[in-house]
């Protein structure tokens, strides 16, 4: 009998620790994300040589230098296209894409939505610090409306994107959210992402200590987090709050926050999270929830089983190969309308 365990060597954090210095600012959320990724990778079930990290441009995109795998630090916004080429060329690889809110929501917005639409099996880590860090403090497409930044001295007059809404609009098969202050949550979510077949998008609320310090404070701060976050788990009721007494229910066509024990609401009335349903409308509502009316949804919001691009592609390739009369280029050149001159 084959011992499956022995086929995939057991890897540890050390296997993925790169030589050289990590050059993010002290206190940057990136450090915690990196640590959690290194913990999650051994769970991916692939040999370390099969892991590839691809990134675009920005602070987050320095990631490939800080992890000991094959890496490609590409162009601003273009990482999804590079990662698509890598994964399609070799589906055996575990491909990770690290991007930021400028990289994926602005200059790479087009590539981002099309990667999700195609459902290529790549894990995307979107570091959302709601600011341009590497270029030193200009507003990004996720910067809150009215924010004063270096390029919006009088406050922005642009409505921000919410990555989750964009992902649901592109019919993403997997969307999760985590905060950089909760390593356990990140590791769990990253493991779920790597186990999902298809594009997995994980948005990490990341703090930029230099240009946008405490932008996520209302969500991640110790005194707020219990009431302002809801950690969603498939098959479990959507309950949150310091005393675990708040929950979500359907109210007409929308969601509503209720308190268990008030107005006749019992625990059994609370919605149970179904991450796997194909019905994207409920996931859209969960992803869209924002303060102060709602808590912000964390954990795996959507994890739907959807056909994967490269699976379908290689099925077509195998079928074409098995049915082809022409087996090589030499035969191709001599097929069809040929003129023989003797």
């Amino acid at each position: 009998m084959i011992n499956v365990e022995s086929l995939t060597p057991i890897l540890t954090v050390e296997d993925f620790t790169a030589e050289g210095q990590v050059k993010w600012c002290p206190g940057c959320g990136g450090h915690a994300v990196l640590a959690s990724v290194k913990k999650a990778l051994p769970e991916a079930g692939v040999k370390k040589e099969n892991v590839v990290f691809v990134s675009g441009i920005g602070c987050s995109s320095r990631f490939p230098y800080y992890i000991n795998t094959y890496g490609f630090h590409s162009l601003h916004g273009r990482a999804p296209a590079i990662a698509s080429g890598i994964k399609i060329a070799n589906p055996e690889l575990s491909v990770w894409l690290v991007t930021g809110d400028g990289d994926s929501m602005a200059i790479g917005g087009n590539h981002f939505i099309h990667m999700l639409r195609r459902n290529i099996d790549v894990n995307i880590l979107l570091f959302n610090n709601k600011i341009y860090g590497l270029t030193k403090g200009q507003y990004s497409p996720t910067t809150p409306f009215g924010s004063v930044t270096k390029t919006s001295p009088d406050g922005t007059v642009e409505a921000p994107f919410q990555p989750g809404e964009l992902a649901m609009g592109a019919n993403a098969s997997f969307f999760a959210r985590a905060v950089d202050t909760n390593p356990k949550m990140m590791t769990e979510v990253f493991i779920a992402a790597t186990k999902h077949k298809g594009t997995s998008l994980v948005e990490v609320f990341e703090n930029c200590v230099i240009f946008n310090n405490k932008v996520h404070e209302m969500v991640t701060g110790k005194e707020f987090r219990d009431d302002n976050q809801i950690y969603l788990e498939h098959g479990k009721p959507m309950i949150f709050g310091k005393n675990s007494d708040k929950g979500l229910v359907l109210d007409g066509a929308g969601l509503k926050v209720v308190t268990i024990g008030e107005n006749g609401i019992a625990k059994g009335d609370i919605l149970v999270h179904d991450a796997k349903t194909q019905n994207i409308a409920i996931h859209f509502m969960l992803a869209k929830m924002s303060l102060p009316e709602f808590p912000v949804a964390m954990g795996v919001i959507r994890n739907a089983d959807t056909p994967v691009y490269e699976d379908m592609l290689y099925n077509q390739v195998s079928k074409a190969k098995s049915q082809a009369k022409v087996k090589n280029v030499g035969e191709l050149l001599k097929s069809g309308n040929i003129i023989r001159i003797d």
């Binding site: 691809v54 490609f72 590409s74 162009l75 273009r78 999804p80 296209a81 590079i82 990662a83 698509s84 080429g85 890598i86 994964k87 399609i88 060329a89 087009n110 590539h111 099309h114 592609l313 077509q316 390739v317 074409a320 190969k321 049915q323 082809a324 022409v326 087996k327 090589n328 280029v329 191709l332």
Partner: peptide, 23 residues
């Protein structure tokens, strides 16, 4: 495809070449 060729019709010219670089 029967000769093992993969084509990727990208979302734009940039993604076309970037996918080729990735491959």
């Amino acid at each position: 495809k029967h000769l093992g060729c993969i084509t990727f019709q990208a979302e734009d010219e940039i993604a076309g070449i970037c996918s080729a670089i990735g491959a």
